[in-house]
Nucleic acid binder design. Sequence first.
DNA 1: GCATTATTTTTATGTTTGTCGAATTAGCAG
DNA 2: CTGCTAATTCGACAAACATAAAAATAATGC
Lengths: 118, 118
Amino acid sequence: MDQKHALAALGALAQETRLELFRLLVTCGPQGLPAGVIAERLGVLPSSLSFHLQQLTHAGLITQRRLSRHLIYSADYGTMNALLAYLTENCCGRDAVCAPVCDPATGCTSAAPKTTAA
Amino acid sequence: MDQKHALAALGALAQETRLELFRLLVTCGPQGLPAGVIAERLGVLPSSLSFHLQQLTHAGLITQRRLSRHLIYSADYGTMNALLAYLTENCCGRDAVCAPVCDPATGCTSAAPKTTAA
DNA sequence: GCATTATTTTTATGTTTGTCGAATTAGCAG
DNA sequence: CTGCTAATTCGACAAACATAAAAATAATGC
């Protein structure tokens, strides 16, 4: 992740509706939610939601897929992890990065795997 | 961290100068840097820098202390960690939080210690 | 007290951003 | 093709934001 992408991601998250929306999708995992359900849950007009979904999508924080008439949105954990890594890069003057790794496949583990060595 | 504070932090970071500034301070550790040095390094006018320092301070991402005539700014790792935790809360539908822990005292370790020692 | 350096506050301006309602595209069923 | 639902795009307006120059505050040393 470079500065440009980090700024896009941070800018996308720095808004009430979008932050709620992203956190909602984060808890839903790769399964995601259709736009209509999201609009209802957040209590936001469809046109507004569409605007915010676009911002998050453009920032790479969420992805879209179609299921019949519905558009399903889900969080992009890769971008999320990259953003966290960018923010914590070289923290405390070290070469290390104290970033988490949220991987829905492995069940949301932190940076250091407990048993399986890389 | 609640939504209000998270929004303040994200909004503060969602700006080129401030993101650079924060990352600079993150790499400097608790020691921090005086405002003048930061202004020179980032190539921004003192008045602009002051504005951005205020935004970051108000968001709780950095702290200020005086050293003679200089005002020294340093990153607030506690707020940073809280923000990362907020973003990753209940990820993948679990109760867990895959948040990192950046602690300058212990050397910026991730949630799980890097070596075998617990 | 007065000059000097370090930093902040103020004021003004141009740009970006969020919201809402209406119109539009997209897919599906009869 | 017509109707129906799901979601997006468009257009206009108010609000929030970043920037720069100038004035003001704060601490230090003579």
